[in-house]
Amino acid sequence: MTSARPTKRTKSPRLPTQTLPAKIFHWTNLISLFVMLFSGLQIYNANPVFGGRSGWNFPDYLTLGGWLAGGRNWHFAAMWFYALNLLWYGLYVMVSRRWQIRYASGSDIKALRVSQNAKRKNYALHRLVYTAIIPILVLSIASGLGMYKPASLHWLASLFVDWQTLRTVHFIAVPIFILFTFVHSLLALRVGSIRLIKSMFV
C-alpha cells in the first residue's frame, strides 16, 4: 500500500513495470486460451453441447483445425501450454509471496463499499475481477481433464454429476473467458491507462 500512495506530484509519473514471469504468463495464457477456444468450437460442432446433432453450429471462421480430428490435435496440444503455464505461475505466485500483495483481499472489498476515492475503487474492482478468474481457470482444467480421461480420472469426472453437466461446465468457460478478457482490459485501462497494458505485454 505504501508504494501506491501518491507522495509528491511530479510531472512524469513512474511508469508501471511488471516482472518477467507475469509477462510470460500473460502471453502464454492469452495465446493458448485462444487456440483452445477456437479449436474447442471445432470440437463443439461435431456434436453441439446444446441440442446434440441437431444443435446449432458455430460458423467455420470461428473454428480451428478444419475438422474434428484437427480441432482435437490443436486442443490437446494447447492444453499442455495452458495447464503447465497456470501451474508454474501458481507456484511462482506462492513462492514469491505475490499472492499477499497482488490479489483481492478484505481491504479491497471494504474499499468498494466505503471508499470515496474513485481510483481506489477502480483498483479494488480490478483486483477482485482478476482474482475471481482463478477458480474459473482451474475449473476448466478439471472439467476438461474429466472429459478427456473419464475412465482413468473417473473420480474427477464424477464430481460433475453427469456427462452433460461436465460438457456444459467446460463450455461455459468460453463466454466467461471472452467476457473476462474485455473486462480485465477495460479495468486495466481505467486503472493505469494504456501504459499499464503495455507494461504487461511489452
Binding site: 467455420d60 471462421y61 480451428l64 484437427g70 482435437r72 490435435n73 490443436w74 490437446f76 496440444a77 499442455w80
Partner: peptide, 17 residues
C-alpha cells in the same frame, strides 16, 4: 485457415506426449 492449418503437424508433434 479455412482448412486444416497445420493441424496434422501439431498432432504429430504432441501425440507422443
Amino acid at each position: 485457415c479455412g482448412s486444416n492449418l497445420w493441424s496434422k503437424e501439431v498432432g504429430q508433434a504432441i501425440e507422443p506426449l
